[in-house]
Design a protein around this nucleic acid. Structure first.
Lengths: 162, 162
DNA sequence: CCCCTTGCTGCGCAAGCTGTCCAGCGATTC
DNA sequence: GAATCGCTGGACAGCTTGCGCAGCAAGGGG
């Protein structure tokens, strides 16, 4: 389980040019088409590649403001709070965590003013004791996976210096 | 600027079955192929759809542990810290925020023990004054966009009750 | 009221890709 | 040595893509 350098190159290639298709990918990588097909099948089966869904930009949808909210939950209310948050479209992501808060969620909104409405909706629920929100100003490192893929791909190649 | 219900249905369809292609999509949606093609082109040009890159699961790559770190930065060190964090493969995402901390980043690691190594590497940099980390236990709402797309798509349809 | 622009439809075509076989072959394992 | 595994290179039919075109309905402007 894991990926080898060829898998890594394939992922990087697809990341840059997702539309190219198996045949073109095999040409770029210098391997047979069947090989690319087999690698893709394996990685999809492995769960390494979850899919190729469209990456939608919330900002272009009219939601340019992103924020992270840390929520403190009343004991035993976890499941209810999760269900509540799942119904809010502006909640893009929700995690339960260790540490100060109990949950961390990613929100988007149409504007800073609109963020207030979203937050009210999020925290307007009984099980939530407290919420602290951090508004995102910049995103110097957008969600990325390639560096990790490269690292993982090289581990299959590690030659100890014997 | 925005999307209409047909755009929304198209995005949802591609989300569920990314491999279907334009022709099949047009059949499913009950519109002409050219229409689907035009919508896709427009949404890509708009930036609504950023791309169709592979969605890679860090867990399947051997990094099952996710954490969020809030970093406090020394005045004026922002750019250096950003550059530093960008070099760490385990940093999947970085935001600068308002609020308590100054930055929020998403980390992954091979294990809880390995997380220590990652954190050491992240905070082992001069500009970082303090870091507090929250380890993700559960992910009740994985990163999603569909509910927001649906909401955005319906806004073009709003009929006031006159 | 008419004209023009815009977006959707339905069609056709050539070119290219996909899905799926197959046999051969070198490397690795038992 | 024999079997297994992954890659190669090739072949095939069937389907999809990219592209262009004409017709048509709806909405906006003059």
């Amino acid at each position: 389980m894991g990926i080898d350098p060829l898998d890594g190159r394939l992922i990087k290639l697809l990341e840059r040019e997702p539309r190219i298709g198996v045949l073109e990918a095999s040409r770029r990588l210098g391997v047979a088409r069947g090989t690319v097909q087999a690698r893709l099948d394996r990685m999809r089966a492995n769960g390494v590649i979850r899919g190729f869904g469209p990456q939608v930009d919330p900002a272009a949808l009219g939601y340019p403001v992103t924020a992270f909210a840390t929520l403190e939950i009343k004991q035993g209310q976890g499941p209810d709070v999760r269900a509540h948050l799942a119904t809010v479209p502006e909640v893009l992501e929700l995690h339960t965590t260790t540490g100060h808060g109990d949950m961390l969620c990613r929100l988007v909104a149409r504007s800073n003013a609109d963020l207030q409405r979203v937050i009210d909706r999020v925290v307007g629920f009984d099980g939530i004791v407290r919420a602290s929100t951090a508004i995102v100003m910049e995103n110097p490192v957008p969600l990325r996976i390639i560096p990790l893929v490269e690292q993982a791909a090289q581990e299959g190649t590690v030659q100890d210096g014997t």
